[in-house]
Design a protein around this nucleic acid. Structure first.
Length: 234
DNA sequence: GTGATTTGACCTCG
DNA sequence: CGAGGTCAAATCAC
């Protein structure tokens, strides 16, 4: 998930409460107790993997100059009492200092909904499954373009990792209000698995155009199944 | 004081 | 042994 932030040091609120439990430097970060002369071998590898992941294809020297981030590790605050296993990792994008790459793992089982206090009664997050979505058997990456025609203003869209696919990652880039293009990275995801999306406002429909190295292109209309039922906050 | 964050040490796995 | 991830004591913010 790539999130544009209005703040300096943390992406926009995603509707859940998180507690930070760790942080790791990325190569080139301005760690108070280390500089470039103290870089270790695995830092360099970390960086190369990061570059590959974000398709930056930059040289090492360029990236040392540009990268300024660390990666923060967060877990749901309700883990102790509700066993919620949701976690996320946050790091600043090296291509745009106001963008953050956020990787979600697991799904919330705590049913927390902090957007319930929002000004609009319809600004509630809805968990929907893309029941009509045939996910390409992605071995590497699938390019996903999706368009959300919202009844209200679309505050944001999440694509969550499928529950049965441990280690899979899903990313998106948030664009304008109702049209968004994202990269959908789902290693190990099989055809039969279902991707989950969370909408902060309820869209009327979403069109998916999937492109992958395997499937040349797959256009589909997504049918939604509301998994959360009627809201408790109306 | 209480709760959250920081940060080096530690753990696990390939 | 290296790398990603996590722990937990110290520190910080309120």
């Amino acid at each position: 998930v790539r999130v544009r932030s209005m703040q300096d040091d943390y992406p926009a609120d995603d509707g859940y409460s998180w507690s930070k439990y760790g942080q790791k430097d990325i190569l080139g970060s301005k760690h108070p107790r280390s500089d470039l002369t103290h870089l270790r071998a695995h830092d360099i590898l970390n960086f190369q993997l990061l570059c590959h992941r974000i398709c930056a294809r930059q040289s090492l020297t360029q990236a040392i100059v540009k990268l300024n981030s660390h990666r923060g590790y967060y877990r749901c605050v309700h883990r102790p009492e509700k066993g919620c296993e949701a976690t996320k990792q946050v790091q600043r994008s090296d291509s745009d200092t106001q963008l953050f790459d956020v990787v979600y793992h697991g799904e919330h089982t705590c049913a927390e909904n902090v957007h319930s206090r929002g000004e609009s009664a319809r600004s509630l997050p809805h968990h929907v499954s893309v029941s009509a979505g045939v996910i390409p058997p992605a071995t590497s990456e699938s390019q996903v373009t999706y368009e959300a025609v919202s009844s209200g203003s679309t505050a944001g869209i999440h694509f969550m990792s499928p529950a049965t696919s441990a280690g899979s990652q899903v990313t998106y880039e948030s664009g304008s209000r109702s049209t968004t293009t994202g990269r959908f990275i789902s290693p190990g995801m099989s055809e039969s698995q279902v991707a989950y999306a969370e909408f902060w406002t309820w869209p009327d429909n979403v069109d998916f155009m999937l492109n992958s190295p395997i499937n040349e292109r797959l256009d589909l209309n997504a049918d939604f199944v509301d998994e959360t039922g009627p809201s408790d906050f109306d």
